[in-house]
Nucleic acid binder design. Structure first.
Length: 416
RNA sequence: GGACAAGUGGGUGAGUGGCUGAAACCACAUCCCUGCUAAGGAUGCGUACGGGUAACUGUACCGAGAGUUCGAAUCUCUCCUUGUCCA
């Protein structure tokens, strides 16, 4: 959630920044009005309630002293009605404010470039040079089918479109990648956690998937439980509604989970192959830090993900997401795109974001800074999307005869 | 699935209608004493929002929600969680 106090204090600056994310000024003005209305409503209620409390205390004294309470009772009864009205007003004001505020995206950092969509993202750097092919490289689905690694039709048979099944070396490679990534992250100081794949509404509100993006989540029938779209949700919410001590920060975690997304807005995109599946494996990094150290952590996380690709000898590049491509909760995001020679383009394989206080404020994750409780900063990033890494391996390691070499670093994980 | 019991602050745990935002103890923080590796003393020590330069102060919160009452941690109802017993 955005900082409403700051919006109140410096409306100009904040609204300008949010307008870059396409937030309507009129909406922000309404939000400001609602915030003020809530303050007034609260003050009104509290004054009445204070009177009520005082009279109730007096009531006790009267009874003890055996005084007549008729007059006092009349006063207290009259005030009670006013209190009830005031609390109603306050509750409505609170609800109206929250509904609106929860749908406002995070304020983008000044370093985020303006832009409409992914075409306006800014390349930061390239790592490794794509190899020269002496033949026309194939796309991954062709290679996957040729080698018997992935069966797209049987996935559809079992579930529906955008599901697939991995066989043999394809399945083993997925498992090897997961282990390799987790080990790699652990060596970089990220503790491994294993978390539920189902979470409740509060958790999803905490990280920003709800209330706005419910249509992209799989929801359990008749229960307030959702399949996680990313491990970021359960891992970040591990510390929801907690006050951490400064010396337990930063918290660095890594988790492997399956992720589930309806891909509601992606009809027609990447329909072929395993780039965009409803269920996919991902190894995630999550960090909880003080505001002062979050950018250092961000660099570490970007490097961690990039270094995994380097270790796998997969050419990739880093891009700074523009305002139009930036996610709801992020203050800024670096995407890592891996080179896919079959597609002849770079494709997203990791996304690392600093949400600063945005998620912390929603999920109420604070830390003790001396005597004061302050919001932590939360960061998350993939390291990496497993399916897409497998895609990248297939396309980059392919031979003319359609066979696929195995990256050196994965061989120990495959008993090779 | 059924029966019973319980859910209080960082922890243990008191508290059955007003003097309780909550005793006591432990932990923690600062200071003092002592002086030696352990002990004694003083003070402080929940969260959120609002007012005040500040000292301080108002409101809410004792699993969650609703209700009874002038007044609820305490009574009633629903739900959740945990424990024990039974299937």
């Amino acid at each position: 959630m955005i900082d409403l106090k700051l919006l109140q204090k410096d409306f100009e600056t904040m609204s300008k920044k949010l307008q870059r994310k396409g937030v309507d000024v009129a909406l922000l003005e309404q939000l400001k009005v609602k915030n003020e209305a809530l303050k007034i409503a609260k003050a009104a209620f509290e004054t009445l309630q204070a009177a009520q409390n005082a009279m109730s205390k007096e009531f006790g004294v009267y009874k003890r002293e055996g005084k007549d309470i008729t007059e006092l009772k009349a006063r207290v009864d009259a005030n009670k009605i006013k209190v009830a009205e005031a609390i109603e007003v306050q509750r409505d004001a609170q609800e109206a404010l929250e509904t609106m505020a929860m749908a406002i995206p995070n304020v983008p950092d000044d370093s985020v470039p303006d832009g409409a969509d992914e075409a306006d993202n800014v390349e930061l750097k390239k790592v490794l040079t794509p190899r020269e092919f002496t033949f026309t490289p194939k796309e991954h689905w062709e290679l996957a089918e040729e080698n018997g690694w992935i069966d797209f039709e049987r996935g559809v048979k079992l579930a529906t479109s955008r599901f697939s099944v991995s066989f043999g070396m394809g399945a083993r490679l997925e498992r090897a990648l997961i282990n390799f990534m987790l080990d790699f992250n652990r060596e970089r100081g990220f503790d491994e956690v294993s978390v539920p794949a189902l979470v409740n509404r509060t958790a999803l509100e905490g990280t920003g998937q709800l209330p706005k993006f419910e249509e992209d989540l799989y929801k359990m029938d008749g229960q307030e439980l959702f399949l996680i779209p990313t491990a970021e949700v359960p891992v970040t919410n591990l510390y929801q509604d907690e006050i951490l001590s400064a010396d337990e920060l930063p918290k660095r975690m890594t988790a492997y989970t399956s992720c589930f997304r309806k891909e509601a807005g992606a009809a027609g995109r990447d329909t072929r192959g395993m780039i965009r599946q409803h269920q996919f494996h991902k190894v995630e990094l999550v960090a909880i830090t003080t505001p002062q150290t979050s950018e250092i952590m961000f660099e570490q996380m970007v490097n961690c993900a990039s270094d995994i690709l380097t270790a796998l000898e997969l050419p990739h590049r880093l891009v700074n997401l523009c305002t139009g491509d930036l996610g709801f909760s992020a203050a800024h995001t670096t995407d890592i795109e891996v080179w896919l020679p079959g597609q002849n383009q770079y494709r997203e394989i990791s996304s690392i974001s600093n949400t600063r206080e945005f998620q912390a404020r929603r999920a109420k994750i604070r830390y003790k800074n001396g005597k004061k409780n302050e919001m932590v900063n939360t960061l998350n990033g993939s390291s990496l999307a497993v399916g897409r890494t497998l895609v990248a391996i297939m396309e980059n390691y392919q031979n003319e005869d359609g066979s696929i070499d195995i990256p050196e670093v994965l061989k120990p994980y495959l008993g090779m």
